[in-house]
Simulated scan of single mutants.
Amino acid sequence: MIKFSLKCAEDHRFDSWFQSAASFDKLARAGLIVCAECGSPDVTKSIMAPSVQSARGDAPPKRQQLAAPETPAQKAIAQLRRKVEANSEYVGTDFIRQARDIHEGAAPERPIWGEARADEARKLMDDGAAILPLPFRPTRKVN
């Protein structure tokens, strides 16, 4: 995992973790990285200093806690996340199949959310399904 400092075309700055530098590039090309404050998909990596542990065996840096939302946009996104998680079913990577079944009447209508590739989501929207991208990703549980 790698942490990048990012900034959008409006000069809003934020940090995010990625699997690799190539992963960031792939997601950026697909338009899946957006500014949390203004929603701009024009996001680039900004200059950052790496966090390196010395060879002397210094204690590793303390793990950073996720910061509480600060800006009105961050607060609105946090509130939206709480509402989505409380009022809909997370279906994970099965989102496209289940959303298509609901759209075509093969499954009962219900609020769902999940993960999808951008091209699959666009095709589903082009077919008339009422879906939209969310400005957050699912919280991952890690050991």
Results as ranks from 00 to 15, higher is better:
Thr139Ile: 15
Pro72Trp: 09
Pro69Val: 04
Asn143Cys: 08
Met1Trp: 14
Lys7Phe: 14
Asp42Phe: 06
Glu37Leu: 13
Gly31Glu: 10
Leu27Trp: 06
Met125Arg: 10
Ile47Asp: 05
Pro108Cys: 05
Arg140Pro: 01
Arg81Gly: 02
Arg117Ala: 09
Gly57Trp: 13
Thr139Cys: 08
Val34Thr: 10
Arg81Trp: 11
Ala78Cys: 03
Asp58Ser: 15
Ala78Ser: 07
Ala28Leu: 05
Val91Asn: 02
Ala73Met: 06
Pro69Lys: 02
Tyr90Ile: 05
Ala78Glu: 09
Thr139Tyr: 14
Ala30Met: 09
Ile112Tyr: 07
Met125Gln: 11
Lys3Asn: 12
Ser88Asn: 09
Pro41Glu: 01
Trp17Ala: 09
Gln19Trp: 15
Pro60Asn: 00
Gly114Thr: 04
Thr44Met: 11
Ser88His: 10
Glu89Thr: 13
Glu109Gln: 13
Lys7Gln: 11
Ala9Thr: 07
Pro111Met: 12
Gly114Glu: 05
Leu66Val: 15
Asp15Trp: 12
Ala118Asn: 08
Leu134Arg: 02
Arg122Asp: 01
Ala36Gly: 07
Ala28Trp: 03
Pro41Met: 07
Cys38Tyr: 06
Glu104Trp: 10
Arg56Trp: 15
Ala86Met: 10
Gln53Gly: 14
Ala99Glu: 05
Phe24Cys: 02
Phe136Thr: 00
Met125Ile: 13
Phe14Gly: 00
Leu124Asn: 04
Ala55Tyr: 10
Ile96Glu: 03
Lys62Asn: 06
Glu115His: 00
Phe24Ala: 01
Ala99Ser: 03
Ala107Arg: 06
Ala21Met: 11
Leu66Lys: 15
Ala106Leu: 12
Ile102Tyr: 01
Ile96Val: 15
Thr93Lys: 12
Lys3Val: 14
Lys26Asn: 10
Arg97Leu: 09
Ala36Cys: 09
Glu70Phe: 05
Ile112Val: 12
Asp119Trp: 08
Cys8Pro: 00
Ile2Cys: 06
Leu27Tyr: 04
Ser46Ala: 10
Cys8Tyr: 00
Arg82Pro: 01
Arg137Gly: 05
Ser40Gln: 12
Ala30Asp: 04
Ala49Thr: 06
Leu66Gly: 03
Lys7Glu: 15
Arg137Leu: 15
Arg140Trp: 13
Ile112Trp: 09
Arg56Leu: 15
Gln65Pro: 01
Asn143Val: 13
Leu134Met: 04
Asn87Phe: 02
Pro138Glu: 00
Leu32Asp: 06
Val84Arg: 04
Val43Asp: 00
Ala78His: 08
Glu85Asn: 07
Arg82Lys: 14
Lys62Tyr: 07
Ala99Tyr: 05
Lys7Trp: 14
Gly57Leu: 06
